Computed example of a mutant assay.
Amino acid sequence: MTDDSHIISRIIAHMNKDHVHNLEDYLVVYSHVDSEIAKRNPTLETLSLSSMTISYIDMHGTKCFIRIPFEPTLQSYRDSRNKLVEMAQKAAAKRGFSEYLINDIPFKFKDWITVFLFISLYIFAYDPSILQYLIGDQLLNLSSDVQSYIMDYHITVFRTILIIHCLEAIVILYPLLRKFRMSTLKKMTCLLLCMMEGMVFLSSFKVAVDEAQNPKKPKN
């Protein structure tokens, strides 16, 4: 059997840098550590063919160590990646999360346009005189019938859009934000953007989900 123990340090460094949330899941699911305590600096300390050891800081500030066995025992350290991924998927699923994490708010140039349009609708609903000025004789000079139609229904249109976007934010986006463990502040920002953009923001977030689940492999 080829000795591949030289990759242990690389695996440990990678887990501690990019997969802290998975270490937290391991502690909660496989060692029944309280979920709030498991968030306190979970660190992969050691890795062997039979187990891994993860540390965390308890409520008294004491560093605690938990050994989590591998079942069955690994045949080589190169098998550890698949094993850690498998354990991460199962642990995250039991907690109602994804094994992947999304930290960045997907906001691109097209989002600025959509937000601008939504804010414009809000301003027109708040102060219809501004809309009347834009569509009236002073600027666009629309026909009186068109002006009357716009002024009669623009508030209804704005309210309908807002209700639909709020439903999309609550029913579709919020479960995704929770599943991918976005921080509270960023979660609120995403919900606000969805209330303004609706499906435009949802499509951007789903692209971010796809990128998280199918990361591009670094070139050698």
Rank of each mutant, 00 (worst) to 15 (best):
Asn103Tyr: 04
Leu173Thr: 00
Ser55Ile: 04
Ile172Phe: 00
Ala13Arg: 12
Pro69Gly: 07
Leu162Asn: 05
Pro218Gly: 04
Val146Tyr: 12
Thr160Pro: 07
Ile163Lys: 15
Lys39Asn: 05
Tyr30Thr: 09
Arg178Gly: 05
Ser80Ile: 01
Pro218Thr: 02
Ile150Lys: 02
Phe118Lys: 04
Lys108Ser: 12
Ile163Leu: 14
Ser144Tyr: 10
Val157His: 10
Asn220Val: 14
Asp137Glu: 15
Ile37Leu: 11
Thr114Ala: 13
Ser143Glu: 11
Leu84Arg: 04
Phe180Ala: 00
Leu44Cys: 04
Ala212Val: 01
His154Tyr: 05
Lys90Gln: 15
Met52Ser: 03
Leu142Lys: 08
Lys206Val: 03
Lys94Leu: 13
Val85Ala: 11
Val200Met: 02
Thr62Cys: 13
Cys190Asn: 01
Tyr77Asn: 06
Ile164Val: 10
Val157Leu: 13
Ser48His: 08
Asp18Pro: 01
Pro218Tyr: 04
Val29Leu: 07
Arg78Ile: 10
Val28Phe: 06
Ala88Tyr: 04
Leu142Val: 04
Tyr126Phe: 15
Leu121Phe: 11
Lys39Met: 08
Asn82Gly: 15
Thr73Ser: 13
Asp145Pro: 01
Pro128Lys: 06
Phe116Pro: 02
Lys63Ser: 09
Glu168Pro: 00
Val209Pro: 02
Asp145His: 10
Pro106Cys: 03
Lys108Ala: 12
Leu121Ala: 08
Asp111Ser: 14
Val28Met: 10
Leu140Ser: 12
Phe65Ala: 08
Lys179Asp: 03
Val209Phe: 07
Met59Pro: 08
Leu121Arg: 09
Ile150Arg: 02
Asn220Arg: 15
Leu47Gln: 07
Gln132Gly: 14
His21Lys: 12
Asp127Gln: 14
Leu193Ile: 00
Leu117Arg: 10
Ser129Leu: 08
Ala38Pro: 07
Met87Trp: 07
Ile119Arg: 14
Gln138His: 12
Pro72Arg: 08
Asp58Met: 06
Ile57Thr: 14
Arg67Ser: 14
Arg10Met: 08
Leu134Ser: 04
Tyr149Leu: 15
Met151Ser: 07
Asp25Gly: 09
Met196Tyr: 06
Leu27Trp: 03
Ser148Gln: 11
Ser48Val: 06
Thr53Asp: 09
Glu168Cys: 02
Tyr30Ala: 05
